[in-house]
Design a binder for these strands. Sequence first.
DNA 1: AAACAGTGCAACCGCTCTGAC
DNA 2: TGTCAGAGCGGTTGCACTGTT
Length: 305
Amino acid sequence: MGRTPCCDKNGLKKGPWTPEEDEKLSRYIHAHGAGNWRNLPKNAGLQRCGKSCRLRWTNYLRPDIKRGRFSFEEEETIIQLHSVLGNKWSAIAARLPGRTDNEIKNYWNTHIRKRLLKMGIDPVTHAPRLDLLDLSSLLTSPQLNLPSLLRLQTLLNPEALRLAMTLASTTAAANDSQLLNSHVQNQINQFENTFDQQIPPNIDDNSFQFQPMFQDNSMPGFGYQVPDQIGADFSENSSFQSTNTNTNTNSSNSNSNNNNFNMDSVSLSSASTLNNGGGEDERESFCSNLFKFEIPESWNIEDFM
DNA sequence: AAACAGTGCAACCGCTCTGAC
DNA sequence: TGTCAGAGCGGTTGCACTGTT
């Protein structure tokens, strides 16, 4: 794995570590402790730079490293923390015992990021990527009929609703679109009013930050609170459920212009029925249930990244 | 069976941060 | 206060492995 060995200008070895090198490094650190990485290679008899030794130790040899696939809980934690911390992999790793920042970063880039994109969620902002959603097919989908769409759209932002309305107005289903127009416009007003009421007047749009809300002792949750009215409406006929938060007014705010939305805005409780050994398919299935939006196959997701 | 494409991940690069002087 | 070296961090690379044609 990794790069082929090569020698740099100082004659130090690079590339994959051999078992012998691992053994030397481990033995030295067990005897003398980690630190002073500059001098460590020389003292340990390694033809490596200190930086390489440090990385090998922290990412691979450390005895408390947990290897193997990420559990669902770990993945959920990563997503939640990433929604708040961004690409602060070390900060995220600090909350996941036994996992390294490098491992989490790799897992994010190779698994979670792609899955979120597939689900139409921007992995950077954790907001729905409307540009990835085929809203026109939503409007005509037999699984997502007009009544359920009108319930679903309460979680979308007004711009999304306007876009949906525009698309609806162009659809051949003239009767449906007429109904949609009036109902959606109604929902837009309701949505905006709801958010206006949720945001205290002393918070301006630019300074707003997510506040963490701890749902229990072990699993911090992040995100904004779905208004009860919306949540109830939403859970009634869909797989979404409102997050049952013990209302913390500090955490219940978002910015109607911000469009932020994250996984914790809806309950992940259904996922808890999956055991840790659940395969990726199960997780995919669970996630897919959260966002049953299909990205048209003809679209190249990479273009949006 | 071979060629090709896609994926996973260890390891490197280069920039930033931090503390000692 | 400024400088420097060491340590840490996030982004990127490139090869082994796996799946597909």
